[in-house]
């Protein structure tokens, strides 16, 4: 089966002064897959993701996202992606509905589609009664789910999730992954960083970053086979043991 490539990087590098955060990484992500981007703290996951989102310019190497170059077409990229950062970044002093409408609006969605889609969204999250509550008053797990729904509200081709489930309980994490699967079924490519190894199992393919480089890239099943271990945890230990950078 020939799959379309939606993200492609070749020797992508980012240096901050003498520190090389991302060191010549090359990989492809296919349309519709859930691509896990794993690594210890400080391995360079967020930096790599920020380059792909057009938030940060690479020092060298090439990359294209949704067919657009990360140096020159950052604004085109931004039209085609959704992004959920590590830090919760919806407006806490706006209500759920106001946040949804605001982000829908600045992506240029029509009034009618904002209306129907926001109703769907509230039903899906079970937040119909909370629609006019300030986002700041919601529990963290709900905030995360809402942030994800807002990130894919404008039907992007790709959604980038930076440690989306940090700090939430296992039940909520499970529900969160249900949302990710729903999005994936709709054809949205999911690019997710995490350091929960159980979550790694949910991905179609994962790449393991160590010290700014990609140490391994394959499906979870294949990785376990390659390293002759039973769990993703062991794969992680096996690869991360050689890391020189201490966690931040």
């Amino acid at each position: 089966m020939k799959q379309n490539i939606v993200i492609s990087t070749k020797n992508l590098t980012k240096r901050f002064g003498s520190f090389t955060a991302v060191d010549e990484i090359s990989f492809d992500v296919f349309e519709g897959e859930i691509f896990g981007f794993l690594g210890a703290n400080g391995a360079g996951k967020t930096t790599a993701m920020r380059m792909l989102c057009g938030l940060s310019l690479p020092t060298s190497g090439n990359a294209s996202v949704a067919g657009f170059d990360v140096y020159r077409k950052t604004e085109k990229i931004k039209r085609n992606i959704g992004y959920m950062s590590q830090k919760f970044s919806l407006y806490e002093d706006l209500t759920i509905l106001e946040n949804v409408k605001f982000f829908g609006g600045i992506y240029g969605m029509t009034k009618a589609s904002i209306k129907t889609k926001s109703e769907e969204l509230l039903v899906q999250l079970g937040l119909e009664k909370e629609a006019t509550k300030l986002v700041g008053s919601l529990p963290l797990g709900w905030k995360q789910k809402l942030a994800f729904s807002v990130a894919i509200f404008h039907d992007p081709k790709i959604v980038f999730l930076d440690e989306p489930t940090g700090g939430v309980d296992p039940v909520t994490r499970r529900q969160f992954w249900d949302l990710i699967y729903d999005a994936s079924e709709k054809g949205i490519t999911v690019f997710v960083t995490t350091h929960y190894m159980d979550e790694a199992e949910y991905c179609n393919r994962i790449s393991m970053m160590v010290d700014g480089k990609i140490a391994a890239l394959d499906s979870p099943k294949q990785l376990k086979k390659t390293y002759e271990v039973n769990t993703m945890d062991d794969v992680f230990y096996h690869l991360a043991r050689g890391a020189e950078r201490t966690s931040d």
Partner: peptide, 13 residues
């Protein structure tokens, strides 16, 4: 500080 500007910067605004 809150981080919302990053969400704005990643939109086509």
């Amino acid at each position: 500080e809150v981080g919302t500007i990053e969400q704005i910067n990643v939109t086509p605004i």
